[in-house]
């Protein structure tokens, strides 16, 4: 799987993401700087986590308007896969590629801990090796992960299976509506999530719960 990792100033989780993609998904990665206006030949685009542009204005707002994003939107419109994690999710939401908004955590605190995630949609490119209802432990580290969307859109997301991950067992760390931790677009080829599965894949992480997600990419 040819994979492009997008690098914005202020992102800091790209190395972990590259390691997960190369070691578990067997992907061939190439890093693309945000000022580029086109993507290399790629199947998957990944926007990792961090704090692009210091979270100025709104998290992900400025990155979402950078030159490379146009190419990423075109890639997605042609059916290409896109995964955004944490700040990457915030960026995808700010471009409008995914619905809703990620607001300041309801308890106003930066949360850095492990949560339980339940898989709600097992037919996406990132969850195909899992089953609906499976639960995994996964770390979160963010200040603005409080998912919000208007009632009508929420109903549609729920009805169309666009909720990919939910916080389970009362571990919602940020006040997200309906415990939403990750969603996809209508076609299912664009996925965004707040938790960091790339940090739960090897023994040193404590658990390897999230390996099947990266194995799904290889499938």
């Amino acid at each position: 799987m040819k994979t492009a990792i997008i690098q914005f100033p202020g992102l800091n989780r790209e190395s972990d993401m590259i390691m997960a993609l190369e070691n578990v998904s067997g992907a061939k990665t190439q890093t693309v700087w945000h000022t580029e206006t086109s993507l290399p030949d790629t199947d998957l685009v990944v926007i990792p986590g961090g704090f692009s542009y210091g979270d100025y204005l709104r998290c992900g707002a400025i990155a979402a308007r950078s030159p490379i994003m146009k190419a990423i939107v075109e890639h997605a419109n042609k059916g290409g896969k896109v995964l955004g994690v944490c700040n990457g999710f915030q960026i995808l939401v700010e471009t409008g590629m995914l619905r809703g908004a990620l607001m300041r955590n309801a308890n106003l605190k930066f949360v850095c801990k492990q949560v339980q995630l339940s898989v709600e949609n097992d037919s996406t490119f990132f969850t195909s090796k899992m089953n609906k209802g499976d639960e995994v432990t996964c770390p979160v580290a963010h200040h603005d992960g409080n998912y919000f969307v208007d009632d009508e859109t929420l109903k549609r997301l729920e009805g169309d299976g666009q909720i990919v991950f939910r916080y389970a067992n009362g571990t919602n760390p940020n006040g997200s509506l309906n415990d939403i931790a990750g969603i996809c677009n209508a076609k299912g080829n664009v996925i965004g999530m707040m938790p960091h599965p790339e940090n739960m894949i090897e023994a040193l992480h404590g658990k390897t719960d999230c390996r099947p997600l990266f194995e799904s990419i290889a499938a």
């Binding site: 204005l57 709104r58 707002a61 308007r65 700010e94 619905r99 809703g100 908004a101 607001m103 919000f148 969307v149 208007d150």
Partner: peptide
């Protein structure tokens, strides 16, 4: 519309 406000919220 394009940047200063997020019209979702």
């Amino acid at each position: 519309e394009q940047l200063l406000a997020n019209t979702v919220i």
